[in-house]
Simulated assay, not measured.
Amino acid sequence: MSDQRTRFETLSVHGGEPRPAAGGSVVFPIHQGTVFEDAPGGGVRYIRLGTNPTQRHLHRRLAALEGAEDAVATASGMAAISTALHSVLDAGDHLIAAGSFYGGTHRFLAEHAAHLGWTYDLVDPADPRAWREALRPATTAFLTETITNPHLRVGDLAGAARFAREHGLASVIDNTFATPVVFRPHSVGFDLVCHSATKALNGHSDIAAGAVTGSAARIARVASAMGAYGCSLDPHAAFLLSRGIKTLALRVRQQNANAAAVAAFLAGHAAVAQVNYPGLASHPDHARAAALFDGFGSVLSFRPAGGAAAAAALVESMRVAYAASSLGGVESLVTHLAAGIHAGSHETPGIPPDLVRFSAGIESPEDLIADLAQALDGLPAVV
């Protein structure tokens, strides 16, 4: 089977899978061993280096999903981002970071870039003029997100990849919110694509994992950083992630449809002041997202009328969606960001105190809307 000519639903199930598999099994086994005989002609197979057979099987699966030459799986999404950045930045280098980033990424740069000898500038992901103004002789890399967290903006992604290429920069993108079902960044020229595979790639809220895909040469540098920091993915988690990927296309398409239905409902509700979702025609980046994406993602954010107190009360009164700080799983999750993972001055700046993030699961959209309706209807009237 040629991965390049296979529709994504089939690729999710079969991409990167060996045929025939070990012992004729259609499911690749867990190789728990940490030590293996050295491969003929050289090559060490060792679990910390990510070269255990189950780990390498997952790497092939991840590469197939994003249409890349190679991939590595890491112990978390932050391990993916940090090792990717370590692979493209040396002491004295400068990074252009475009987007209102996930809090963990922002915190990593704010708290660790300086002692690693890196400098960086945060710029608007949709403003090429800002990118040019941020460019320095020491600039070596450009980092962005496909869909920004938590404001759901979509930058000029093709332009960003082109800008990086024209200026000899390594381009790195976090594709967690979109997933390769919605967008495959290598197709527009990005060098490294990162995921928190804890989220939609696995989809069942039961492992922590990360992924980085790219050319064989670039992934070799990422793998070197991963081995040095000891953050490869355990074979049991690798097995679960590979299994989760098999239903990725089905899950994400249902989640996208649910998110679109929820966003449309919220946009028409009198108790909601603002909805951020690129699938809405009113969204400032809707046209760009429609041109680039196959779907608009499973996550949205909104601001209920009534401020932070209303946001807290709404989250507390939800009955179907869990009040939990994650996204991408089969269950819907709702988070009052100012009171959850983004609380505190060390997190991502610019998050309003009343912002609520909703990650759509695969439940009935009618039940999700009914749950939100009862929560919104129970809020005090705003006069």
Results as ranks from 00 to 15, higher is better:
352 P>N: 02
76 S>K: 07
153 R>I: 00
220 A>F: 12
6 T>A: 15
239 F>K: 13
129 R>G: 12
197 A>W: 01
133 E>L: 14
243 R>I: 10
292 L>K: 02
156 D>V: 03
59 H>V: 02
5 R>W: 09
345 S>I: 13
141 A>F: 06
116 L>M: 06
102 Y>A: 06
40 P>Q: 07
98 A>I: 01
225 A>C: 14
190 F>D: 00
262 V>M: 13
26 V>C: 10
351 I>V: 15
212 V>S: 00
262 V>N: 02
377 D>G: 12
370 A>I: 02
201 L>Y: 03
303 R>N: 11
95 L>N: 08
349 P>C: 05
146 T>Y: 00
178 A>V: 04
10 T>G: 10
139 T>I: 09
100 S>Q: 13
73 A>C: 10
187 S>W: 07
373 A>E: 12
245 I>C: 14
366 E>F: 09
104 G>V: 07
163 F>P: 00
254 Q>N: 09
253 R>N: 08
281 A>G: 12
242 S>Y: 07
282 S>T: 11
206 D>C: 14
302 F>V: 05
15 G>K: 06
47 I>K: 10
175 N>S: 04
229 Y>V: 05
8 F>S: 01
353 P>L: 06
220 A>M: 13
357 R>A: 10
203 G>W: 01
316 E>L: 08
114 A>W: 09
32 Q>V: 15
175 N>L: 12
166 E>V: 05
130 A>L: 09
222 V>W: 11
373 A>G: 06
253 R>F: 08
156 D>N: 10
62 L>S: 08
185 P>Y: 00
78 M>F: 14
370 A>K: 10
326 S>I: 01
29 P>C: 11
207 I>P: 13
114 A>N: 02
97 A>C: 14
287 A>T: 13
188 V>E: 00
285 D>T: 02
155 G>A: 05
272 V>K: 03
140 T>R: 15
78 M>E: 00
340 G>D: 08
75 A>L: 05
275 V>K: 00
299 V>K: 03
208 A>Y: 06
47 I>Q: 07
163 F>T: 01
104 G>W: 03
81 I>M: 14
228 A>Q: 09
166 E>G: 07
302 F>G: 02
75 A>S: 13
18 P>E: 03
371 D>C: 04
128 P>F: 10
180 P>C: 08
298 S>L: 14
287 A>R: 13
154 V>A: 08
339 A>Q: 12
138 A>R: 12
336 H>W: 09
173 I>W: 00
224 S>E: 13
15 G>H: 04
276 N>I: 00
322 Y>F: 12
66 E>Y: 07
278 P>D: 02
269 H>T: 01
128 P>S: 04
